[in-house]
Structures are given as C-alpha cells and as structure tokens.
Design a protein around this nucleic acid. Sequence first.
DNA 1: AAGTACATCAACCGCACGCAT
DNA 2: GATGCGTGCGGTTGATGTACT
Length: 297
Amino acid sequence: MGRKPCCSKEGLKKGSWTKEEDLLLTEYINEHGEGTGWRSLPKKAGLLRCGKSCRLRWVNYLKPGLNRGTFTPEEDDLIVRLYTLLGSRWSLIAGRIPGRTDNDIKNYWNTNLFKKLKAQGNEPRRHKSQVKQRRRKKEKKNVSSQINQTNNDRKKTERKKKEKIDENCKVEDKDQVAKKIEEKLHTQNTAQEVSTNNHYFTSSSSNQDGTSSATSTSEVNCSSQNMEAQNQDEIYEKLQAIDELLLNDNCLFPPEKCIEFNNNENHMLLEEVYEEYFQLVSDENSCHFRVDGNLEF
DNA sequence: AAGTACATCAACCGCACGCAT
DNA sequence: GATGCGTGCGGTTGATGTACT
C-alpha cells in the first residue's frame, strides 16, 4: 500500500520562492511559531505551496541565525572529520556546526570539499548510501523471522537507554562535568598536534611491522567488515544520544559554547569531547578514540 | 557580444521513522 | 500488530550564475 502524497499537488506553486512568499511565511512563523504543523501552514499563511516546501524554505533559508557566509577552514576540517566518522548524515553533521544547515553542508561537500580533497589526494572513503543501507536492512528484516523485534520493544529499549543516560547525568553535577571536560581540553597541549596529524583524516599510523598506512577515524582495524559496520552503527547511536543531550535545554555545551570552541585557536576536537562525555555518562566503554585519532574497541 | 561549458545551490522527490489510533 | 499521518532526511535535479572561448 503506497503512501498518499504529502499534499495535493494541484494548483500548488513550485520553483523559486518570491520575496512576497518569503514574507508571508516569515510573518506567519514569527506570529505562530515553528511547530504548528507544516501541512496546514501554507493554507493558514495564504501560500500556494506544499507544507514540505515551506518547511524547507524556512529551515534552509529564512530561519534566523543561519550563517550564509563562506565556509572557514575550521569548518571545512570539522565537516571532513564528521563525514569520515558519520558518513552522509548531513543533519547530524549540521547539528554540530552552528548556523549551517544540512542542505548547505551537503551542497558544499558535493561541489567543493570533496573535489578539493580529491585533488589533494585526500579523498575520503565513500560511505554507503544511508538510504540503500536502510533498504537493505529492511529487506533483510523481512526475510529473517529471527529478527522480529516489535516497535514496542524498540521503544522500550530506547526508553531504557535514555533513562540510563539521564540517570548517569544526574550522578554528577553537570557544571562540574562541563568544567572537567573544559579543563581536560585546556590541558591537552597536544590537541593541535593531534589535529594536524588527523588533518582530513588521513593521518599515517604505524603498523606493528613498521610499515605505515593511511587510516581514517572510522576506518578501524576490524577483522571483518561486519564488525566495522556494527561498530559504526553503535557509534552512530551513541552520537545521536549525545546530540540529544547536547541540544536539549540541559545542554552541556550550548550553541554559544560550540561557537566559542570552534573559533578557539585550539578548537575542540569533537571526538575527544564525545569520548570524555561517554566516559562520564555511560558505563559502556566499548569504543573510544585513541590519541592517534583512530577508534579503539 | 554570443555561445558554450561548468559550478553552484535552492528546491524537489521518495522514502523511512515516530507517533497515534 | 496493522494502518495512517506528519515530519525529517538524503539523494538528485534543474535553474541560474559565472568563466571561458
């Protein structure tokens, strides 16, 4: 059974937005807020657009606080590092770069950054398409009756996970946690060095036999590809959990802090903060970042 | 000035997820 | 558990701008 379209396409405008439309949308959202239902918004705001189109226009273009300037080298570096770690999870990457939208970063990556890295011989590993991965996962799920976890079970697990994290958060005063992390970052004289070594995630790592090989953070030396995929899924889930924590009201690192860190000469190494954060809020230490920037499980 | 190639990025589309029933 | 709905995400397209011949 196919899904119904998000809205009737008949009589709706497509293509570029006019100033008048922008104004109508902005005025409506300023008056009624953002979360009042995109589907019904166009009609209420007097726009001949589909709700999805309105959302996209607002999120990517009209929303206050967006940074539409050119990308800085620091941002470039961060994007590459996050891409290497997370793949094309643009929204997740955008969430860690204040003022930038997923669409912005995606476009910038496809038109600039990727080509630039390729030209430098630092071409990052292409991640499998998330959509295709999800589809494959789903197909597999349909075939295998063993993997039959119900939605409710999943919800339960998620809830449990969240509760666990919340619980751990309460154990230590958040200010102290933040202070601790900042202190550690401050005292990490090697931070810049590590950053340089990890530049564009192509740092050289020495093998036991004395040879060296180019590795990326996500390219962990796992015995099998399945292991790697599984570990990456775990990391992704954890990062999502952290992101939820970071972005909610009890944020350990509020957006202004992120900007501060990003602008800092010794700008924070996200992985290290994540690692530290994991250690503080979770008893699961199944993986962490080594000093050389690679992941260890 | 005109034509063409290439680059950029706003916007669209299809799909999956979460939630409610 | 099945279904429907709203929303958000990632991949892709195509209009527009710019550089080059």
